[in-house]
Design a protein around this nucleic acid. Structure first.
Length: 914
RNA sequence: GGGCGUAUAGCUCAGUGGUAGAGCACUACGUUGACAUCGUAGGGGUCGCAAGUUCGAACCUUGCUACGCCCA
């Protein structure tokens, strides 16, 4: 879509009108992945969003940062590949479809597994594209032609191979142990999916009668145990005391007759019992508590022998010894939906039996009262998806030996082979990796990668890449049944950096070229879930790091600093912000606020400010267009003689260097601010103002031709440098300004290749200082800003002599000084303005308030004197001169000289006023 | 209990040894053409507190306070 006859730009900038058009253009022309076989590869894989998802503000941040990097590297000529796709998200997706069924009074279990999975696929085909459409609205330049899904056939092959390989290497195994069980979703989940929250609860104390006439040292015929979960006493298998606890030496090895069940259980000695806590006696329920599980194993109870009292929904079931009274069977573990459960009934029965030790406290009037239990804050595990209390439950599950797989990644980070940015996350990473627990990867779901393991009727396991292969292992005629469970979603997404590139085909060209990836950008919240596991799998399969660098960003918070959540109702919809301010403004906000990992507080005013910035650029382009400034044909800076033109060329080079330095260390904020300040404060505020007089004269003069050429080039450089942050407006202007051989998205990064003239820089800096100081003096003295004033300069400095002649028009227009006469001013009241070493005398007889001018000069004098005194003090200190860095001393001397000069000029100026 | 982080202008944030900045907000002035989604000028900070190191500390060290996050 090259525009050969540029149409005048509309007077107002309307983001919505251009965004969809340009995105579609880029995508259909394949510009997100230009063919660059010779170029250096640069690779990012996106954190695949849940296929059920829609774009939230965190995605907006994450993907903006990735797009800034990928567009930047593409402009720098790299073979930039941004892999995109979505995650099948086992639990989340299954929940979405189950909820739909519920809405129709239907449920999953009314269908066969195959039929239900077909429904999920149908849902995915119909509604799964929401988030990918939304990523397009944000302007993300991913390679959609290779869009991936974690349940694509090739991806499934990779997952199955991974499972089989790990199993054969002994790194995946089946084990019976306690897992975190979600009774709502009826599946096991991993440690990471459990969130501990402290909630109000109770602490009950029970008497457990000793059997066979045993007594404690103090003579009691019972032990007192305390618990926050009384219902679990139905599956108690022991009471533990500390081996050194003198109070209980006589009962170790004796027995308890448990109330309610009548179960006879031993009193055991175990260091887990803390003598300092409560009575020092602890009830032990190995089948329903992680600590007790370990105590039970130490006491010689095999996991298979541990009593289980819950069904998958955490309703009470009969224990293996048949001792749970009938009235408990089927009750929920605790009060639910207003109905009392096993917990409440246990307390009631214990109280009736006189075995509840009341909690004595005082009411608000100071009267002593007895409560059933002590109110306490209880740290409680919740499932991050289902939101209900997690039940430790004894089951057979598949585990990954994470500790073994963690070794190479940990070394790699320690060696600096993988760079984590910001570095402060390294410690957290090491701490987790070095204390890592076995990773439970089986999930009792239907939607996901089914575990490639088969059992024969004796429970013997055959792990294979296909049913045929498993049958081969088992032998003909042996009846096999495939494991019903699926794999943790993170097990598959851990393969993302290479399975998306063609692995396990070893000679996959993309894999050869783009693995290891260059960079991964993710929120720190998935460092363990995903990033660490990609490292494990990358090293396991390919013996190489998945990426050179890992950049971790923070959370986007609400304006008040609170975490955004649907329940709080404080979520900000990025699409709403795009509608209101444009995608470019939202992107720029995200980049400008991103300073290495700290959280970003939402500030809509700031988004608005960046929309204003886009408008500013739009209007600057309109000005250029109106003055015949258009597309530049050269990458290198055009030849320039005029000071302003030389100056802006130097400023372009400085800006490009600043962005490059910032991007090299992933300082998105510094990069964004560099182009912002250059565009607004240098190009618009000064350069365009400086060149306006050139266009007032002969439009074909050499000066006008040169200026049009340089201005067009400089504006082009702005568009290129700003493009990674604001792709839409820059692409639009790129084409509006003239016919182009290629789109901006595949343009060339600035390479000015120009010497910056020191004289030109000095001259423009001098004009700027003169202008600013003159404006300031006028404002303070109440002189009309627009009034043209004659000025006299008696002894011009070299820079003044050169510049007054060459830039008279600019001085007249900006400082509103004309004519400027070299020579003594006529006597009389005058305003005096200083620029560098030069003093301008501006006669204002009859207009000027002498007292005000005096006050103004005295104020400036006082400021200079204060600075000078401070510098003198420092330089008078021998310790400073001897010990400080020589550059620091030189700078102090130069600063002092400057202030002394300033003092002399101001003193003289005051003297002239009389 | 362990670890990490934060505290700088009214607000949101930059600033890793040389005497403090940006955007927004605020005040005053300004619309005979790039832009009022703007321009010009200006006010505003004992850099959380205390001690130490140093010629010199927002920055380094230690302690304290407050807030946040992660792990147990």
């Amino acid at each position: 879509m090259t525009v050969s006859n540029p149409q005048p730009l509309p007077t107002t900038f309307d983001p919505a009108a251009i965004e969809a058009r340009w995105y579609q253009h880029w995508e259909t022309k394949g510009l997100f992945r230009p063919h660059r076989p010779e170029a250096e590869p640069f690779t990012i894989v996106n954190p695949p969003p849940n296929v059920t998802g829609s774009l939230h503000i965190g995605h907006a941040l994450d993907n903006t940062l990735q797009d800034v990097v990928i567009r930047y590297e593409r402009l720098r000529g790299k073979d930039a590949l941004w892999v995109v796709g979505t995650d099948h998200a086992g639990i989340a997706t299954q929940m979405v479809v189950e909820r739909q069924l519920e809405a129709q009074q239907d449920k999953r279990t009314n269908y066969t597994r195959e039929d239900f999975i077909a429904k999920v696929w149908a849902w995915k085909e119909e509604s799964g594209g929401t988030i990918t459409r939304q990523l397009r609205r944000l302007g993300c330049s991913m390679d959609w032609s290779r869009e991936q899904f974690t349940m694509d056939p090739h991806f499934t092959r990779a997952v199955i191979k991974t499972f089989v390989d790990l199993y054969r290497d002994g790194l995946i195994y089946r084990d019976k142990r306690l897992v975190n069980w979600d009774p709502k979703l009826k599946t096991a989940i991993s440690d990471l999916e459990v969130e501990t929250q402290t909630i109000p609860g109770h602490f009950w104390r029970f008497k457990y009668p000793l059997a066979d006439g045993a007594r404690t040292e103090a003579g009691a015929d019972h032990l007192i145990v305390a618990t926050t979960r009384p219902e679990t006493m139905l599956a108690d298998m022991a009471v533990a005391v500390h081996p050194a606890d003198e109070r209980y030496q006589s009962v170790i090895g004796k027995h308890i007759i448990l109330p309610i069940t009548g179960r006879r259980v031993p009193v055991i000695a175990d260091e887990h019992a803390d003598p300092e806590l409560g009575s020092g006696c602890v009830k032990i329920t190995p089948g329903h508590d992680f600590n007790d599980f370990e105590v039970g194993k130490r006491a010689g109870i095999a996991p298979a022998a541990m009593l289980n009292m819950f069904d998958p929904q955490a309703n009470v079931c009969q224990t293996a010894d048949g001792l749970v009274p009938q009235e408990f069977i089927g009750l929920h573990r605790f009060r639910k939906d207003g109905v009392d459960g096993a917990r409440e009934l246990v307390v009631k029965r214990m109280k009736e039996l006189g075995l509840l030790v009341p909690f004595i406290t005082k009411d608000k009037d100071g009267n002593e009262i007895a409560l059933d239990a002590e109110p306490r804050q209880i740290p409680t595990p919740f499932g991050d998806r289902g939101g209900v209390v997690i039940e430790p439950w004894l089951t057979d599950q598949w585990y990954v030996n994470a500790a073994e797989l963690a070794k190479k990644p940990t070394e790699a980070v320690r060696r600096g082979d993988i760079e984590i940015v910001p570095r402060s996350w390294e410690k957290t990473f090491f701490n987790w990796m070095e204390n890592i627990q076995p990773w439970c990867i089986s999930r009792q779901l239907w939607w996901g990668h089914r575990i490639p393991a088969w059992f024969d009727k004796d429970g013997k396991i055959y792990v294979a890449e296909s049913a045929e292969e498993a049958q081969q292992q088992a032998g003909e005629g042996v009846a096999l049944r495939q494991d019903e469970d699926v794999l943790d979603t993170w097990f598959s997404s851990a393969l993302w950096p290479f399975a998306t590139l063609g692995w396990p085909e070893a000679d996959a060209p993309l894999l050869q070229r783009h693995y290891p990836n260059s960079l991964l950008i993710s929120g720190f919240d998935i460092l363990f879930f995903w990033d660490a596991r990609m490292m494990m799998m990358g090293f396991y399969h390919l013996d190489k790091r998945p990426w050179d660098r890992l950049y971790l960003h923070g959370l986007v918070r609400a304006a008040d600093g609170a975490k955004m959540s649907k329940s709080k109702g404080n979520v900000v919809d990025p699409l709403g912000l795009i509608d209101k301010y444009g995608a470019d403004a939202l992107r720029f906000f995200m980049a400008a606020m991103e300073s290495q990992g700290r959280d970003i507080k939402m500030d809509e005013k700031r988004v608005e400010g960046y929309r204003n910035f886009a408008t500013k650029l739009w209007n600057a382009a309109r000005f250029c267009q109106a003055n015949g400034i258009g597309a530049s044909a050269s990458i290198a800076a055009p030849p320039a003689r005029l000071a302003a033109n030389q100056w802006i060329i130097g400023e372009v080079a400085a800006c490009a260097a600043a962005i490059e330095a910032a991007m090299a260390e992933l300082r998105f904020d510094n990069a964004a601010n560099a182009i912002y300040q250059f565009t607004w404060s240098k190009f618009c505020d000064w350069y365009l103002e400086l060149i306006k007089p050139v266009f007032a004269g002969d439009p074909d003069s050499p000066a006008a031709l040169e200026t049009r050429s340089v201005a067009g080039w400089a504006l082009d450089q702005i568009l290129v440098m700003l493009h990674p942050f604001m792709p839409f407006i820059t692409e639009e202007l790129w084409h509006r300004l003239g016919a182009r051989e290629y789109e901006l998205i595949v343009a060339k990064w600035p390479a000015p290749q120009a010497e910056v003239s020191r004289e030109a820089t000095e001259a423009i800096d001098w004009v700027i200082e003169l202008t600013t100081n003159t404006r300031s003096a006028r404002a303070e003295l109440g002189i009309a800003p627009g009034a043209k004033l004659a000025a006299y300069i008696a002894e011009p400095s070299p820079v003044a002599s050169r510049t007054i002649a060459r830039s008279a028009a600019a001085i007249e227009r900006l400082a509103r000084l004309a004519p400027v006469t070299i020579g003594a001013a006529p006597p009389g009241a005058a305003m005096q303005v200083i620029a560098g070493e030069d003093v301008f005398i501006i006669p204002l007889e009859g207009v000027i308030d002498i007292a005000a001018e005096k006050a103004r000069l005295e104020k400036a004098l006082a400021a200079s004197q204060k600075e000078a005194r401070s510098l003198e003090g420092r330089l008078a200190n021998p310790a400073f001169v001897e010990r400080a860095a020589p550059q620091a001393v030189d700078k102090a001397r130069a600063d002092l000289a400057h202030h002394q000069g300033e003092i002399a000029r101001l003193t003289a100026a005051l003297a002239r006023l009389g």
